[in-house]
Design a protein around this nucleic acid. Structure first.
Ligand code: FES
Ligand code: FES
Lengths: 154, 154
DNA sequence: TTAATTTGAGACCAATTACTCTTAAATAGC
DNA sequence: GCTATTTAAGAGTAATTGGTCTCAAATTAA
């Protein structure tokens, strides 16, 4: 596929990051907890979250009482950071017609309009922090898994 | 992949449809011509364009002097029509976090914003006709293949 | 020190998407 | 009728993505 806003890995990563942002910031949370609560495959999620630890967004700790936690305040981490770490930023750079060298200098017939739209997506992702995401889920009881609003462990 | 604006098939279909919209509307154009000019695999493009003939957007004709041509005026066919015929409209319906049942009634934390953005994409696609696309390429000499502006057969 | 718990790394398998190839059917022109 | 040209249909293959599994390494606690 060519013009992809989010891959499955990106989706799982974002959901997990939001979930983790809802937890006390000083505790390591086992990936198995996240996977269980969000109904995501534990092994797959482990691999996805590794791309976040590799860019030092998460820190991890092995062994009993281990898990993952954010390396910096969730108010300072944006959806964009998460998505790009997992899926790269190609969606924000590449031509919607998949022509090489998307730019204002060599535009395709949709370039001007697509440019605007993807800028909006970028702005949305950049201006939404994981703290915002977590707050939405908590205060407005929005859903983060397929099991309805806040059947999460509360 | 989960949130996909355009698949490769969708991209090829759109490029080919735009190319075809640049040709005289009363002639059948062989798919091999389109494939050659746009540097797309002939067999793959054939299959992609079949989804357009199957929804009666294109009509086709076999044999010598055969090919494909639009079944109605290109001013009346939108980018949206082409994209949906090839890729379905799932991008305009499904949750960006891939949660089941995207709607204002059971929103995820990104729903309100994502709703707006995909509505814009939808509007762009719906309001851009293939005649518009063709005119852009012709009058502004924008590119439609990877070989620079209008090295198409002119 | 041993056993249990947890992430890390990567091999492996499955599913989906992208692409190719072969054969058939329709049509034109000789 | 015969041959060449073209789309139709679909089987088959390759590449990418999604997902599983195994084993190693780190850490805790008994
Ligand atoms: S979106 Fe096509 S060239 Fe930029
Ligand atoms: S975009 Fe997530 S519920 Fe609509």
């Amino acid at each position: 596929m060519v013009v992809v806003v989010l891959s499955k890995a990106g989706v799982y990563g974002l959901r997990a990051a939001t979930y983790l942002a809802m937890q006390p910031s000083d505790e390591y949370v086992p990936i198995s907890n996240i996977a269980d609560d969000l109904r995501i495959s534990f092994h797959f999620l482990t691999k996805v979250l590794q791309s976040l630890t590799q860019v030092n967004m998460l820190k991890s700790f092995r062994g009993p009482k281990g898990g993952v936690t954010f390396a910096r305040p969730v108010a300072e981490i944006s959806v964009y950071d998460v998505v790009v770490a997992i899926d790269t930023d190609s969606m924000f750079r590449e031509c919607i017609l998949a022509l090489p060298g998307c730019s204002d200098q060599s535009p395709c017939p949709l370039h001007a309009d697509w440019q605007q739209i993807r800028k909006r997506v970028r702005t949305l992702f950049k201006e939404t922090s994981l703290a915002d995401m977590a707050a939405q889920v908590k205060t407005k009881k929005l859903r983060l898994s397929d099991i309805g609003p806040s059947m999460l462990k509360s």
